[in-house]
Design a protein around this nucleic acid. Sequence first.
DNA 1: TCTGGGGTCCTAGGACCC
DNA 2: TCTGGGGTCCTAGGACCC
Length: 414
Amino acid sequence: MPLTILHADLDAFYASVEQLLDPSLRGLPIAVGGGVVLAASYEAKRFGVSSGMPAARARQLCPGLRVVGGHVREYQRLADLVMAVFDEFTPHVQRISIDEAFLDVSGSIHLFGDGATIGTEIRSRVRSRVGLPISVGVASTKHLAKVASQVAKPDGLVVVPHGHERAFLEPLPVGLLWGVGPVTEAKLAGRGIYTIGQMAAADHGMLRSLLGEAVGTKMADLAVNRDHRSVRPGGRSSSVGAQSGFGRSTATAQLIRAVLGHLADRVSSRLRASERAGRTVTVRVRFARAGRASRSVTRSHTLDDAVSTTLTITEIAERLVGVALADHPDETEISLLAISVSNLRPQPALQLELPVVCDDPLRPGSPVGAARWAVDRSIDAVRLKFGRTAVGYAGVALSPYHSVPDEFRELAEH
DNA sequence: TCTGGGGTCCTAGGACCC
DNA sequence: TCTGGGGTCCTAGGACCC
């Protein structure tokens, strides 16, 4: 028996929430974001406005565009309500971002009806209870369900009947395949491949040499709807990171320290909140030079022990940025810094009190690490009670380098 | 107009071990 | 002494997704 997989995806999510909260925005072209567009309503998309675009550019394309601020808390709350609707049909729900999920309803059909019936009912409940439009794709594999939901947008349902998968895929552009972006699309176009059908007919060896072993094999499989991935509930991220863009600036020690301090604070407090720590610290530096495309480099360091203390991560990051700058002596201006911690493992709060875990990885045997744990735990506790801005490290909390308000940063979290 | 921020996965070379 | 193969880990970069 073929499986029945649904992919459910809220339409223009942030923009739809804003229109839900403020009825005067309904039917109007709107964009959510500050300097850049995080989401555009369908009315705005018709003018060519898309996410990731600078707001100034979006206004040029769409003169009547309303740019609205983000109701960050509402996004999370409403998305969670939608996910709760999914749970009513099956426990096999895999959330893949704030606003979309896969559902394996194969075992629910005898209770609720076939995939089309369940998809229709989900759309109806989300509309009536939450008030948001949602598109649903129904198919026998995850990948095809995802393609179907894209075809269904906006506010639609597309069912791909079993046995008709390849006929459905054949005429569609390769860009609809999950994993095909601008670069891959251009490479395929160079071989005269524009549709999924053309890709299915292409020589597999050629695809692998053109796109690389893994991507080539995957594409050859997807084009003929070979997709054996199952819907897996849960799953935590395998890295935690933060970045900050601040416009072209001279790379002074003060700037670097202030930005890294702030980033390390965000990353480490999130690590501790999820009771995790990581062994690998990675920094990214984006160089900015007038009249030339910016480029970024990364430097990473893997420690013997996992860390999650603010000051330790700050110090490692500072050292790594120093290495990156030393490797590029001709670059004097930077426009972005990022810190990411990976190689994560559980670190229960209880363990934090143990001296052996508190060892300072930069200076093994040093009691400094233990003191840092205590300070971080205290800061976490105060913030839990009085809010993030109540307390922090001097020079971090007072730093002027906060180009984007923290609420906006949290848009992309989770 | 190269703009924001938070992620995943893949590739390729080198070190190291068996 | 040289040769071979396989596996794992680390590092840097890049494509892609929301």
